[in-house]
Computed example of a mutant assay.
Amino acid sequence: MPLLIAILAATAPLAAMATERWGGLNPCLLCLWQRWPYWVAAVLALLAYLLPRRLMLALAGLAILTSGAFAVVHLGVEAKWWPSPLPGCVAPNASAGQSVEEMLASLSPRPAKPCDEPTYLVSGLPISMAGMNLIYAVALGGVALWGARRLR
Score class of each variant (00 low, 15 high):
residue 150 R to C: 08
residue 20 E to Q: 14
residue 125 L to A: 02
residue 82 W to D: 06
residue 116 D to Q: 05
residue 133 N to W: 03
residue 48 A to L: 01
residue 113 K to E: 09
residue 65 L to E: 08
residue 131 G to K: 01
residue 50 L to N: 00
residue 68 G to C: 09
residue 44 L to E: 04
residue 50 L to Y: 03
residue 101 E to G: 05
residue 3 L to N: 03
residue 84 S to Y: 11
residue 138 V to T: 08
residue 148 A to W: 10
residue 122 V to I: 15
residue 82 W to V: 04
residue 41 A to V: 09
residue 132 M to F: 15
residue 41 A to R: 05
residue 30 L to A: 04
residue 62 L to W: 03
residue 133 N to H: 06
residue 144 A to S: 07
residue 18 A to Y: 13
residue 145 L to F: 11
residue 20 E to T: 14
residue 28 C to G: 15
residue 5 I to W: 01
residue 14 L to V: 12
residue 81 W to Y: 08
residue 136 Y to N: 05
residue 123 S to K: 10
residue 75 L to M: 14
residue 57 L to M: 10
residue 27 P to N: 00
residue 128 S to P: 06
residue 27 P to Q: 00
residue 69 A to M: 13
residue 11 T to I: 13
residue 35 R to Q: 13
residue 84 S to K: 10
residue 107 L to Y: 08
residue 108 S to Y: 04
residue 136 Y to S: 02
residue 98 Q to C: 11
residue 10 A to C: 10
residue 142 G to N: 06
residue 12 A to F: 03
residue 67 S to L: 08
residue 95 S to G: 06
residue 88 G to K: 13
residue 121 L to V: 12
residue 21 R to A: 15
residue 83 P to V: 09
residue 91 A to F: 09
residue 143 V to G: 12
residue 125 L to R: 01
residue 139 A to L: 15
residue 119 T to P: 05
residue 33 W to G: 04
residue 129 M to G: 08
residue 92 P to D: 03
residue 47 L to K: 02
residue 99 S to H: 05
residue 21 R to E: 07
residue 143 V to D: 12
residue 30 L to D: 03
residue 149 R to G: 15
residue 48 A to Q: 00
residue 15 A to M: 07
residue 150 R to A: 15
residue 86 L to W: 06
residue 85 P to T: 11
residue 129 M to H: 06
residue 30 L to P: 01
residue 82 W to K: 04
residue 46 L to Q: 02
residue 98 Q to P: 04
residue 8 L to F: 06
residue 13 P to V: 01
residue 121 L to K: 03
residue 71 A to I: 05
residue 10 A to K: 04
residue 40 V to I: 15
residue 100 V to I: 13
residue 152 R to H: 10
residue 43 V to L: 15
residue 150 R to W: 09
residue 59 L to E: 00
residue 20 E to L: 14
residue 128 S to E: 09
residue 7 I to V: 14
residue 126 P to I: 13
residue 132 M to S: 12
residue 17 M to N: 04
residue 17 M to C: 06
residue 16 A to Y: 14
residue 4 L to S: 13
residue 99 S to M: 03
residue 109 P to I: 13
residue 102 E to S: 11
residue 14 L to I: 12
residue 66 T to I: 12
residue 142 G to T: 12
residue 41 A to Q: 04
residue 99 S to G: 05
residue 114 P to G: 02
residue 20 E to W: 14
residue 105 A to L: 03
residue 100 V to M: 07
residue 116 D to A: 05
residue 22 W to F: 12
residue 25 L to I: 15
residue 58 A to D: 01
residue 127 I to A: 10
residue 145 L to W: 10
residue 148 A to V: 02
residue 110 R to N: 10
